[in-house]
Amino acid sequence: MLHIVNKSPLDRPALDTCLATAQPGGAILLIEDGVYAATTGNSAAGKLTQAMGQMKVYALKPDLEARGIADRVLEGVNLVDYGGFVDLVTEHATCQSWL
């Protein structure tokens, strides 16, 4: 299934809970303030990289660009636009938004 996270990992525990809940084979899409987790040097980078062993991690490029951080995306994070967001939703049977 697809997990959507829209919170900065330093603001709320959404990403932590998501990573502990998501099952292997799933996918995580970071949007809105969630994209901060996908940047180098962010304290969430380690756990996100670790999660990549079990699931695919995506980040919404327009949200990265809007925040001036599109040039420091963590290796292994796949960037998508809104069309890619739509594809991720249709490719997975269900999705959960970690609001």
Binding site: M1, T17, A20, T21, A22, Q23, G26, A93, T94, C95, Q96, S97, W98, L99
Partner: peptide, 18 residues
């Protein structure tokens, strides 16, 4: 546990979060 809830979540048709 979170992992157990995660497994249940996978079996759903619709997950609504508030």
């Amino acid at each position: 546990t979170r992992a157990e809830i995660g497994k249940l979540m996978e079996t759903q048709d619709i997950v609504l979060s508030f």
